[in-house]
Every structure is written in C-alpha cells, then in structure tokens.
Design a protein around this nucleic acid. Structure first.
Length: 304
RNA sequence: GGCGGGAUAGCUCAGUUGGUAGAGCAGAGGCCUGAAAAGCCUUGUGUCCCCAGUUCAAGUCUGGGUCUUGCCA
C-alpha cells in the first residue's frame, strides 16, 4: 500500500489550487475525491479543474461517467485503490470534498456485490405506495440490528438495507460484522479550514462567477444531450436549482439564491463530518501556501 | 376614485365554533458503512399592523385608521 497525501476541506476553501501547486512543484498526480467531478460535461458548477490545469497536472477520477449514470463510495474506493496501488505513481494526492469517499478508501467498505439498480427502483416505488412505516417494519423483521441504527423515515438507508437483503439474501448488518480491518495506509491527511462567514462569502461569490462564466449554457447543453432532472449527475447542487429557471422560467435570482444556500448547507455538513476524522495537519486558508506546507510534505515523502 | 383580498417567527404561509399560536424553509448544533453536492435527527416567545370597543377571555368578533395587493374605472 502506497502512502498518500490527502487534502480535504469544505467547498470553496481552496483545496484544488493548493493541490495543483503541490503537484506541479513535486511532480505528483491528483486523484479527485469528488462525487460530482466524476461527471462528464459538468464542469462549471462542480468547480472542476480546467483543461489547462489538467494539462499541467495529471488528474484522475474526473470525467469518468456520463450524467445519467450513478457513482458511489464503493466505486471510488475501488478505483482510487486501483490507480494508486497498481501504477507507477509514487505519491498521489487525493484532493476533494467528498469526505465519505475518502473514508471509504482509507478504511474500506464491506464486501457487498453491486446491486441491480432496478431493485432500488422497485423499493423506491414501494416506499411511495406503501409508506415509510411499512417499509421500516419490513426492515425490522429482516434486519433488526440495522433497523435499530436507522431512523424510521430515513428512506435511503432503509432502502439500502432492504436492497442488500433482497439481492444477496444476507443482512447488511451481517456484512458489517464480517468486515475485516483494512491495513492502515500511511497518509498525510491535511484539512483546510476557514471561518464560517468567509467560506459562505466565497461560496456566494464563486457561484455568481460560475453563472457569469456560462453555467446556464452548460446546463442547457446537458438538456440538449438528453439528460434531465432525474439524471443522477444533475441532482448536483448548483445544477438542480437552475433547472426550474431554464425549464419553467422561474425567477433567476431566486434560483441562484437557492443554489448558494444549498452550497452553504453542504459546507456546513462537510465541517461537521471533518470533526469525526483525524488529520495530521490543519491549516487556515489565509495562512496556507506552498512554502509553509512543503517542508511537511517533503518530510512525509522522505520517510517513505 | 370604486370593489375585494391580505397584514401572524428572518422568509413563505396555517390557525378549526373566541380560551395569549404552529408548519415548511432559513439559522444553529448533530448523525452518517456503496445516492454522501445525498439522506436523517435536535432546536420555534413571536409588539399575531395600530387604536378603540364587545367579552371573564380576541390572532380569531365590531368600528376606525395605516400599509399592501388584485380587479374595475
């Protein structure tokens, strides 16, 4: 298992530019840990590195699927591991805001086979027709241990428990119990933070900039390609809020405000998530630059 | 100018036959084992526009004002 440098932080805090600078100076490659940058044709509101930036530094796990496809933490963990451990890369930088993906990569997930999306679709329809209570009762009778941990109206987790059982004939909680510990990987896990108010301001400004740069045209061309509001990719914050404007002529300013608001909500959830994780280094955005971080990185690299 | 709707939590609005208020969203905090930019939990005292009246009791009824909005001129 190769050692890995990881850069995390809430959205709009400046992760990507730092990763890019480090990667350029030390000749490293970047693996994006971002649940939305995996989508082709969605560049602006995912804050994807530009084509120019991607020429400067090799980026992985960007543009790997089309917006009608679903991605998940398991695929990320598998693909990231594949790239890191089965290639010539010596020190990759994982950089991204999807903390769950990074945890899944580091700690591993239980070994559950891929589940046919139709199973989930059927369960989702049942949820709508039978109601949450009945679905939760099903989960209690199938997998009581899991049911205890899941809220009685948590559609996603109840359906996940049911789909695992229906597809594999084995309880999700049983998979959890069998899960072994992954060999710990050597990491330099860096967190970048900033004051809440500053993060929020940066989110707002950045989104306005995205709209000015042609976000509406990007979304229109996605629609022209045949993707719609049901496409998994288009459920991304910054995209879904603008669809009503494009499709039904809702008020643009309101849609933009909503997109900003959802981005702020997202940043808050990220910050809460980071509290559960351990980091080797925590920097404030203002104080961070390559010069005061490179000694840590070089030291980390020299030791492996 | 005439006729009618509104005025209640930061915002959008509920409030039954009068008993001093409650949802969603926001905000704040939290959870998280393949949807994670997702999903979920906790957290709601606010001149119920103002003044007067009726009443034991008025957001709720009556009168007068103010503001707002729609239609007609």
């Amino acid at each position: 298992m190769k050692p890995v440098i990881i850069i995390q932080g809430p959205t709009a805090v400046g992760k990507s530019s730092l990763a890019l600078e480090i990667a350029q100076k030390l000749n490293l490659e970047i693996i994006s840990a971002d649940s939305r940058q995996v989508y082709k044709y969605m560049d602006l509101a995912t804050a994807k590195p530009t084509k120019e930036e991607q020429k400067l530094v090799k980026h992985h796990l960007i543009d790997v699927i089309t917006p009608d496809q679903a991605y998940n933490a398991g695929r990320f963990a598998r693909q990231a591991t594949e790239i890191i451990d089965n290639s010539d890369l010596k020190f990759p930088i994982i950089c991204g805001g999807t903390g769950f993906y990074i945890s899944s990569f580091l700690e591993g997930l239980c070994d559950i086979p891929d589940i046919d999306p139709e199973v989930r679709e059927t369960l989702s329809k049942n949820w709508d027709s039978l109601g949450s209570e009945n679905m939760y009762k099903q989960l209690i009778s199938i997998d009581p241990q899991l049911a205890q941990k899941v809220a009685s109206n948590d559609k996603q987790r109840i359906i996940r428990g049911l789909e695992v059982y229906h597809s594999t004939n084995k309880k999700l909680s049983a998979y959890w119990e069998e899960q072994g510990l992954l060999e710990p990987r050597k990491v330099l896990n860096i967190l970048i933070l900033d004051q809440r108010e500053t993060i929020y301001q940066r989110i707002n400004k950045r989104y306005e900039q995205m709209v000015r740069s042609g976000l509406l045209d990007e979304i229109k061309s996605l629609l022209d390609m045949g993707y719609d509001e049901k496409s998994p990719g288009l459920t991304a914050v910054g995209y879904k809020e603008l669809l009503p404007y494009i499709l039904h002529k809702a008020d643009l300013a309101e849609c933009i405000n909503l997109a900003k608001q959802h981005s702020r909500n997202y940043a808050k959830r990220q910050l809460t998530w980071y509290k559960r994780n351990n980091f080797n280094l925590v920097f404030f955005r203002k104080s961070i630059n390559y010069n005061n971080i490179d000694s840590y990185i070089k030291n980390f690299m020299d030791n492996y």
